[in-house]
Design a protein around this nucleic acid. Structure first.
Lengths: 189, 189
DNA sequence: ACGCTAGCAGACAGTTCTGTCTACCACCAC
DNA sequence: GTGGTGGTAGACAGAACTGTCTGCTAGCGT
């Protein structure tokens, strides 16, 4: 009880939604697993979609935090930070129960007109804007282009990480990122 | 009747599965839409999963055909062909009703131990092997690495194409491909 | 003592899903 | 004409789904 019903629901939903996809988990399962009453769940999240959106918000926080940490760890040079982003991917793919990008997975099972889809687009746009800022500070000739290319690689690597357990995927992405950053900033460093 | 019930079922399933994801389409819907009797559907495809796999096989044929056509159109030089692959992505993303990579979408809503997941892994491996052969003929220092990087970009671009209608995504992927191919084959051409 | 808030427990309605089954029909080979 | 093949039409069972509702309990501020 101490952590409050809302947190328990979100914790449970986080694990189940990520493992099986929002559509693959019934409300009853979340109720049973979290030990919360059904009425309580529907008080906090009137519709299942509200719970899904709260789940995605949490994923956004966690994943963005990991990206920031990876960049911070990579060093002072923004170019190193851009490449360092892919350490977050490498680490994520190695994690037990890794199942790809939660946003991509969630969007894959919804129509393009839904809130879930919109939230996914928004998340990707925010990440790309942040990468573009790094690219600008790295002195890229076209920061928007470089950010676009790196986030494409990012999404590709996140997807490949679940399809193909081979860690060569994330490593290949990292090396590709280095090549693209070098090309965009005019030479190696 | 002329085209046979099996084809009618597959045609209908192809459209519906791609638009809403296999899990988002009930067997009843396919029955109604294809004008086929339920018993007939279950005679040809004893389980829904069998129909999903047949759907994926058809997607594989179609998409691989488009990749091959894009490479062929790009010219004689294997390096041009590697870059030309991304024309297939550009064209796919522009198509009305584009909804991303059918394999990635299908895999996103299944467990990793399922047939659907395995078929997806297989498809991606076949495409990558084919790209690796192109990379070898293009004289890449490490064809496996280049193929890995290009297919990462491919998957990233296919995913971005549905999340973000901006055609800059596929174009960015194309330009990144050119950079990576140049780097791997030692200089521009 | 009183009322308010938060929560638990579980029945319930109504829909939708997969998969099975019965009954009938049309054609074609022999 | 007779039997096999492939198809239609639709009822049906059994499960799972979302969302609602009733009743009960415990704590807490005043």
């Amino acid at each position: 009880m101490a952590p409050g019903a809302r947190e328990r629901i979100l914790d449970t939903a986080f694990g189940l939604f990520y493992a099986h996809g929002p559509r693959g988990v019934g409300v009853d399962t979340i109720v049973a697993e979290s030990g919360v009453a059904k009425a309580t769940l529907y008080k906090h999240f009137p519709r299942k979609d509200d719970l899904v959106l709260a789940y995605l918000d949490r994923v956004d926080q966690v994943w963005f935090g990991q990206l920031r940490a990876a960049a911070r760890t990579a060093g002072e040079d923004p170019r190193d930070q851009l490449v360092g982003l892919f350490d977050a991917v490498v680490r994520a793919c190695r994690r037990e129960g890794y199942h790809g990008c939660a946003f991509i997975n969630a969007a894959a099972e919804t129509d393009t007109a839904t809130d879930v889809h919109a939230r996914t687009v928004e998340h990707k746009a925010v990440v790309r804007a942040w990468v573009a800022d790094l690219a600008r500070r790295a002195g890229a000739a076209d920061p928007q282009l470089l950010a676009r290319q790196l986030t494409l690689l990012l999404d590709g690597a996140l997807t490949a990480g679940v399809l193909d357990a081979d860690p060569a995927a994330a490593d290949g992405a990292r090396r590709a990122a280095r090549t693209l950053v070098a090309e965009a900033t005019g030479g190696t460093w």
